[in-house]
């Protein structure tokens, strides 16, 4: 039976169609298989609809997705593992069926770039802190009230902060 699945997508779609028709004319194929909807959904949840945009397979309402879910049911009833089923979908419909790009080649960029940029941002911020906190003469134009804010007697006094804010609003 597994041989059928290694063929081209068209054959598979036809097969899935047939299966689908079967499932709805005869009384449930799946009930006999003993594969529950939850088991099917658990795998379908991890896959994306190969034809619609950004829709997980378990909630996709289209007819095509219904067939794909029945296909998963059939594969489960034949004893295929979750990994095998996922691989089958990737082989037939491309990497877009996975909820994340596989960690290969160019795809590494998606995993590496954001943390690299965040670290770079943190580094720049840290450097700026260091530069800012160097003891330098406060510019004359900074105004009395701004200097006042840092006077140590008031630092932890909530009401003082509150008062200072009001003063500035005048």
């Amino acid at each position: 039976m597994n041989k059928i699945f290694s063929r081209k997508p068209l054959r598979i779609t036809l097969f899935a169609l047939l299966l689908f028709a079967l499932a709805f004319t005869a009384t449930t194929v799946f009930a006999q298989d003993g594969v529950t909807d939850d088991e099917v959904n658990a795998i379908a949840k991890e896959l994306y609809c190969p034809v619609c945009e950004n829709t997980p397979l378990d909630v996709c309402p289209t007819e095509a997705c219904r067939q794909w879910r029945e296909l998963i049911r059939l594969q489960l009833s034949q004893g295929m593992t979750e990994e095998e089923i996922k691989q089958y979908f990737v082989d037939n419909y491309g990497a877009r069926v996975l909820s994340e790009p596989p960690r290969t080649g160019l795809n590494w960029l998606i995993y590496i770039l954001p943390p690299a940029m965040i670290l770079a941002g943190a580094f720049i911020l840290f450097r700026s802190f260091r530069a800012w906190t160097k003891p330098e003469v406060v510019e004359a134009g900074s105004g009395e009230e701004r200097g006042e804010a840092s006077s140590p007697a008031e630092v932890d006094d909530y009401v003082a902060r509150f008062e200072e804010e009001l003063k500035k609003r005048k």
């Binding site: 877009r96 996975l98 909820s99 790009p101 160019l106 998606i110």
Partner: peptide
């Protein structure tokens, strides 16, 4: 942006979904 870049440079469509 990444799926667009991937499609542009490798022709491969990828999905970046909630787990990421």
């Amino acid at each position: 942006i990444f799926p667009l870049i991937s499609e542009l440079f490798t022709g491969q469509k990828v999905t970046v979904g909630p787990p990421f």
